[in-house]
Amino acid sequence: MKSIQLGITGGIGSGKSVVCRILETMGIPVFDADTEAKKILIEKEASFKIKKLLGEKAYLPDGNPDRKYMAECIFSEPALRNAINEIVHPLVRQHYHTWVVKNSDVPIVAKEAAIMFESGAYVDMNFIATVISPLELRKNRIRIRDQKSDEAIESIIATQLPEKELIERSDFVIHNDEKQLLHTQILQMLHKIQPVSEDR
């Protein structure tokens, strides 16, 4: 049996992780592409190519990536961002495919990715859900969670696809505005994806 693959995307601070956590509590395994990408950065294959691209400064003496330096490079130079994406994303997709095979006995699996469309990961998905949230609420979340300045937050948001485009390209929209219950929206979505799930 092949699992239905559900992609969860949305801008920074929109609340993708909360949606994914709720999916997990409903028994749906979730693959976190960002966490996986962080793991991949430490792997030999990726670190060798990234050092070639950004120099030895991209990695700390202990072998861990210098995230601050990398972030500066990525957000200031779009060409570098694309080059790093071309190194990391194929590896993330490879890991994801292995993970999907491992979980082939569950009816639905989910993948959380901030850049689902930009990375090309959307082609693997049967359905895509975008999590949206009012801009001010997103900024508030990021300010507290990542301790970033408003300027930094705005420059990250500017590099991501506009919300309007995400909505147009998605099958479902989940409103994380702290007014509507997420559980209800997620259940409605799951029933549309797999209407027979309750009768199994």
């Binding site: 409903m26 799951l190 799930s197 309750e198 199994r200």
Partner: peptide
């Protein structure tokens, strides 16, 4: 590993 627990 429990599979196919009814969502709702």
């Amino acid at each position: 590993s429990y599979r196919n627990i009814p969502f709702s």
